[in-house]
């Protein structure tokens, strides 16, 4: 039962993280390799805010989201004027800078040792120590986030993002400011990633640079692609699937240091398989005029 609750909390956090990634990659065809950086920043803001300061729950969540969003504006300013290949490079570089800063600014982030002892959030003096009560909070927040994201997906903004991925010039000819649109998408996507990070920090009570690595990025990529890029419900399904499927590995009789790499292997094999099988339909070529 405890284990089930743990999985549910994890799934909820990943739902927010993956759906926000779905906005930029799935709808907008923007491969933002720094999405996990947004997640990390959110986690660290909450970590620092609640350990050194005395941030309340909502302050922490808003601060985390906002900081991630703000930094994404910086990234967007540089990366969004670049074409696909260079865009991927730019976001990758940004992600690495964030990583390097987290490791090196020891005074603030405690370097590779990470920040521990992050307290559970308090709602009106009631501390959510119990995992089930924490689950209620996370579930409620996730529900609200997903509802907002759903509205974005099915409304004009989602439509325009989709169109941009398909035929950029045609969308420009219809009077849409694509740069502004992408910047907004970035901001929203990163803010949600920061929010997910905040929840992560509150749940695990410990953050360190290694939890936000390259392999997290590949997991998110796998989730979005397996769930069909741009599909809201597909992404929900694939998140649940991909977060849960490596779990049986825990119960096998293998040394604990192998569990991580095996989970990674399983997820990346699924990714490559799905990409290969769908290569004709996935990310159909954008048309240039």
């Amino acid at each position: 039962m405890e284990y089930g609750i743990h999985l549910c909390i994890l799934v909820c956090i990943y739902l927010i993280l993956a759906q926000s990634f779905n906005i930029t990659l799935g709808l907008g065809r923007l491969l933002n390799l720094a999405h996990v950086a947004g997640y990390a920043i959110g986690a660290y803001v909450t970590a620092i805010g609640t350990t050194t300061g005395d941030m309340g729950l909502f302050t922490a969540i808003i601060a985390s989201s906002f900081t991630s969003g703000l930094l994404s504006l910086l990234l967007g300013g540089i990366a969004l004027r670049l074409s696909d290949d260079y865009f991927a490079i730019g976001t990758l570089a940004f992600s690495s800078i964030v990583s390097a800063l987290l490791i090196n600014c020891k005074g603030v982030t405690n370097g590779v040792l990470g920040i521990s002892g992050i307290p559970r959030p308090k709602i009106a003096d009631f501390e959510l120590l119990n995992n089930s009560s924490f689950l209620f909070l996370v579930f409620a927040i996730t529900f609200v986030c997903l509802a907002i994201i759903y509205i974005l997906f099915s409304g004009p903004f989602g439509r325009a993002l989709r169109a941009q991925g398909e035929n950029r010039s045609a969308l420009l000819a219809l009077g849409r400011d694509i740069r502004l649109m992408n910047t907004t998408a970035f901001f929203i996507s990163s803010s949600f990633a920061g929010l997910a990070g905040s929840l992560y920090a509150y749940y695990i009570n410990y953050v360190d640079p290694s939890s936000f690595s390259f392999s997290e990025m590949t997991l998110l990529l796998t989730i979005v692609i397996v769930g069909s890029p741009g599909s809201f419900w597909g992404c929900i399904g694939s998140t649940i699937f991909l977060v849960c499927i490596p779990e049986p590995l825990r119960f096998l009789d293998i040394p604990s240091y192998l569990v991580g790499p095996m989970r990674q292997l399983l997820q990346s094999v699924i990714l490559v398989l799905v990409v290969w099988l769908n290569r004709n339909r996935l990310f159909s070529l954008t048309r240039e005029v």
């Binding site: 439509r159 989709r162 169109a163 398909e166 035929n167 010039s169 045609a170 000819a173 159909s284 048309r287 240039e288 005029v289």
Partner: peptide, 8 residues
Amino acid sequence: NFGIFRDM
């Protein structure tokens, strides 16, 4: 070259 959005 037809500026319509074919997948929509």
